[in-house]
């Protein structure tokens, strides 16, 4: 069985700025994988390249068995993407948003309706189905966005800072859903700023200034840096980055 995600020297430059520098990553299927690092470390750029939103400057990557540069069409059918902005239509209801996004993946008609209803039930959204998304709080929007990103049952799911601006209770519920998805075989790649969330990941990768500097289980990574917690690792890295910048 091939890895869900595999990159070889994946690089992206913006002008003279190296956003991602020769990144090599192998992520097996069914894992919850955390992509961590301070702001500007290249997390979001990496995810955008893996989703086919951004072309790499050099290097290669394959996601769910598809080359991100050449098999973009097939790739898009097999991934789900949820951004920190959620990408929902505030003037459409929860169900309308879900039905729309699902239908773009070919999940339409009566099977689509059934599938959308199932997703609404699973995520506890059924009572809110007829509410306009614009009237929902951040936590509810997050769940709607997750529903939209998973209605077509993608084998690989990208979550770009999905819990930014969401209250702790909603975050906890969100993570339970993520584990359920992973148990069912979905590979989940998540970027986050919350270190308690990082410790929930099965494996994490630390990025700093576009480079991969550590990869492993949260315990392995903390040990490698000789720190107590992931948070300490993060802070020491950030200090180092800022020291370089100033």
């Amino acid at each position: 069985m091939t890895d869900a995600i595999s990159t070889q020297s994946l690089t992206r430059r913006f002008g003279t700025y190296m956003a991602v520098d020769k990144l090599d990553l192998q992520i097996p299927r069914g894992q919850v994988f955390g992509l961590l690092g301070p702001n500007g470390s290249g997390k979001t750029t990496t995810i955008r390249m893996l989703c086919g939103l951004l072309a790499p400057t050099s290097g290669a990557a394959s996601v769910a068995g598809f080359d991100v540069l050449h098999d973009t069409d097939a790739l898009r059918l097999h991934i789900g993407y949820m951004s920190q902005r959620f990408g929902l239509y505030p003037d459409l209801t929860v169900r309308e948003n879900l039905r729309f996004y699902a239908s773009l993946y070919g999940v339409s008609g009566s099977t689509g309706a059934a599938r959308c209803d199932a997703v609404l039930h699973e995520l506890g959204l059924i009572e809110r189905a007829s509410q306009l998304v614009g009237q929902l709080s951040g936590g509810w929007k997050q769940r709607v966005a997750l529903a939209c990103a998973t209605a077509h049952k993608p084998p690989v799911l990208f979550l770009d800072e999905p819990t930014a601006g969401v209250d702790p209770a909603a975050r906890r519920r969100f993570w339970q859903t993520i584990y359920t998805l992973a148990e069912c075989g979905t590979t989940v790649i998540v970027t986050t700023h919350y270190m308690d969330e990082a410790e929930r990941c099965q494996r994490i990768a630390f990025l700093s200034r576009g480079r991969l500097i550590a990869i492993g289980t949260p315990d392995e990574v903390t040990r490698e840096f000789g720190q107590e917690t992931i948070e300490d690792v993060f802070i020491s890295l950030q200090r180092r980055d800022e020291g370089v910048l100033t």
Binding site: L53, D73, R76, Y81, S83, R85, G87, L88, L104
Partner: peptide
Amino acid sequence: EEGTLEQLIVTPIS
């Protein structure tokens, strides 16, 4: 502006 364009680009629609 609302970020839905990016979301659309990730979907299979051309």
